[in-house]
Design a protein around this nucleic acid. Structure first.
Length: 429
DNA sequence: CGACGGGACGC
DNA sequence: CGACGGGACGC
């Protein structure tokens, strides 16, 4: 889960010494761990003292990437912030499959910061990516993920972190819950900064009753994943509705079965002045004043993170078929010039974006609808101001159609977007 | 009212 | 009862 962890990671790795809290809440666990805690903190400090004092923090780790996103696409996305020194998508050595995370190293630290602020929490296809500073590579941080079960059903994420906080720095945590009912499964995960912190937690908590819980806890290292979950079988349903109140189609079309219904305007009455953003990113004005109930932690912990909208249940369309379509344009666009087809994707023309638009806006807008290969904002060569339009290349026809149908006519900062397949090509070959 | 880039043979 | 996420540190 994208949560408060980023702030913790970037600001300070030092865990809060919460042993007293544990004592207060815990009736079953022996209170003999203060020695261990002090030892672990000392190790932590001495290790931190060795590196990264004045090193520029240019290196980012990107997690929860869409399965089919390529390294080039990731690089294109992060280059919308500034020049990228290197970009590495981690793949399975044998199958070549993406492991869903990547490292992006910027040339300038400021761009890395901006990327965290701008791209963390961005929705791409069915994923919400996480962008955070990479820690210095080391063996000691591997295998620090714990599996926990035996939790009471009313035990929440905050309770979980509280239970583990005295053993080290928590990088992430999660309680598994039934997607329908939202009820806890009594199972969770806690990832520590350091492996030895996880080891301490196991030795202190495994088999014990915590805070009068019904059953003893099981705390062990989580399974290390071996094979990629097949994404092909999924109906690509995970278009999770986020109801950010952002899309606002103004031309309903009866023939569009997959146009989703209008939502509340992105600009609620009490923030109509947001045309001139106070905060740095041009997307600030798109953030609704009231957080979505589905993602309170995201909204509260990442107030500067623009969250691109996601269509509510786009019916059918995209299955697994992809490339075969490219050579045979569907009849529904038979009157469209072939210039929208590049043999490596579908080029979309986006008109009526503001003069200060940058590439990340187009990623925000189109990323939720499917695989985006590249985006381009057209600027005046002198002023570098956006000329009011740009291009987006998407891989799959159906996803491009859905994006067009959903984004064409949308009110973005009081501008009505016009979105269509590209019709004119500048003399090719 | 307006309105469809542009870089690029590459280890 | 069993229950391993959205493969989190360079595949």
């Amino acid at each position: 889960m994208i949560s408060v962890k980023n702030a913790q990671m970037s600001s300070c790795y030092q865990p809060a010494n919460d042993a007293s809290m544990l004592d207060a809440n815990n009736n079953c666990i022996a209170h003999s761990n203060s020695q261990l805690f002090n030892q672990s903190f000392n190790q932590d400090e001495s290790m931190n003292g060795e590196h990264d004092i004045n090193e520029p923090k240019t290196n980012l780790i990107v997690n929860y990437l869409p399965q089919n996103m390529t390294q080039d696409e990731i690089k294109a996305l992060f280059s919308s912030i500034g020049p990228v020194e290197s970009c590495k998508l981690i793949k399975d050595k044998l199958t070549g499959q993406s492991l869903g995370y990547a490292f992006v190293n910027y040339q300038i630290q400021g761009d890395a910061e901006k990327a965290v602020n701008t791209l963390n929490g961005m929705r791409l296809q069915n994923k919400t990516i996480k962008v955070s500073h990479a820690r210095p590579s080391s063996e000691s941080i591997k295998g620090a993920n714990l599996y926990v079960c035996g939790l009471d059903k009313d035990f929440g994420q905050a309770d979980l972190e509280k239970m583990f906080s005295s053993f080290g720095t928590i990088i992430s945590s999660k309680i598994l819950s039934d997607p329908k009912t939202g009820a806890s499964k009594g199972v969770g995960f806690v990832r520590f900064d350091q492996r030895y912190e996880a080891e301490i937690a196991i030795s202190e908590l495994n088999g014990k009753c915590y805070d009068n819980m019904q059953e003893p806890l099981i705390v062990k290292f989580a399974n290390s994943p071996t094979s990629v979950k097949s994404v092909m079988g999924l109906p690509l349903a995970p278009f999770i509705p986020i109801n950010r109140g952002f899309y606002q189609p103004y031309r309903p079309s009866a023939s569009n079965s997959y146009r989703y219904s209008p939502m509340t305007p992105y600009c609620s009455p009490d923030q109509t002045s947001l045309n001139t953003p106070i905060l740095p990113t041009p997307l600030t004005g798109m953030i609704p004043a009231t957080p979505s109930p589905q993602t309170p932690s995201l909204a509260t912990s990442l107030p500067n993170t623009p969250v691109a909208p996601v269509p509510t249940m786009v019916p059918t369309m995209v299955n697994g078929q992809t490339t075969a379509i490219l050579s045979t344009p569907p009849t529904s666009i038979s009157n469209t010039s072939l210039s929208s087809i590049n043999y490596s994707g579908w080029c979309i023309f986006v008109y009526n974006v503001g003069p200060d638009t940058d590439e990340s806006l187009l990623w925000q807008l189109f990323g939720p609808f499917g695989a985006v290969q590249n985006v381009k904002i057209i600027r005046d060569q002198q002023t570098l101001k956006c000329k009011g339009f740009g291009f987006v290349t998407m891989t799959n026809y159906e996803e491009a159609v859905t994006a067009i149908n959903c984004l064409n006519g949308f009110n973005l900062n009081n501008r009505i977007l016009q979105v269509s397949f590209k019709t004119q090509a500048k003399q090719m070959y």
